[in-house]
């Protein structure tokens, strides 16, 4: 059963990922991205990380891709966009190199960790037992986030506030001919 779920989710993820790259139309690419994100959410559920799955859907599928689509729709980026014209010449070879590098790093990690995964022993990670208490998983996450890592949490929120203020400032910058000072 677990294997079946994994294969389905993996097909969703890979299909979506290929779709993002090969579709001609930006909106179709964004829709394929949603497929990938949902596939990842399914994998989270299969690993009993229900909270992570929900947040994945709410934040990525529900907010970020909506924003992508919003920009595509408002700017009217159409299929007329010519893919042959290269604004920054180095970026395509660079992208290929980086992609190869990432594949290499991930493969190395898998090869290195194979024995640990197979034997099922993980060092340093305390795996909470979630059976019985339905909310145990989420409670544990909340306790970790708001007690041990509260400083990092607050820093992240400060970062977000800075981003918002910066955006407002950039968007409302008075033009040079304007009367505003």
């Amino acid at each position: 059963m677990a294997f079946f779920v994994f294969v389905c989710a993996a097909l969703m993820i890979l299909g979506g990922a290929v779709g993002v790259i090969i579709s001609q139309h930006p909106v179709h690419a964004a829709l394929s991205l949603i497929l990938t994100l949902f596939g990842v959410a399914v994998l989270y559920v299969a690993q009993d990380a229900h909270f992570l799955a929900a947040v994945q859907v709410i934040v990525y599928a529900g907010a970020i891709v909506v924003l992508f689509l919003f920009v595509i729709m408002l700017l009217g980026v159409d299929s007329a966009e010519d893919l042959q014209i290269e604004p920054i010449p180095v970026q395509r070879p660079l992208a290929a190199i980086v992609a190869l590098g990432i594949v290499g790093v991930i493969s190395a990690a898998i090869v290195q960790a194979r024995s640990t995964i197979a034997s099922g022993t993980r060092s340093g990670i305390d795996i909470p037992t979630v059976s019985g208490d339905a909310d145990g998983n989420i409670r544990q996450l909340a306790r970790d986030l708001f007690s041990d890592h509260v400083f990092a949490f607050e820093l992240t929120s400060v970062l977000l506030v800075v981003a918002v203020v910066g955006t407002v400032l950039l968007a409302r910058r008075p033009d040079k001919s304007g009367a505003a000072s």
């Binding site: 799955a53 929900a54 947040v55 709410i58 907010a63 989420i138």
Partner: peptide, 15 residues
């Protein structure tokens, strides 16, 4: 166990 979050997720997908 994530009942309400599922609700929020669906309402954001409905967009």
């Amino acid at each position: 166990q994530i009942g309400l979050l599922l609700l929020l997720a669906l309402s954001s997908v409905a967009v």
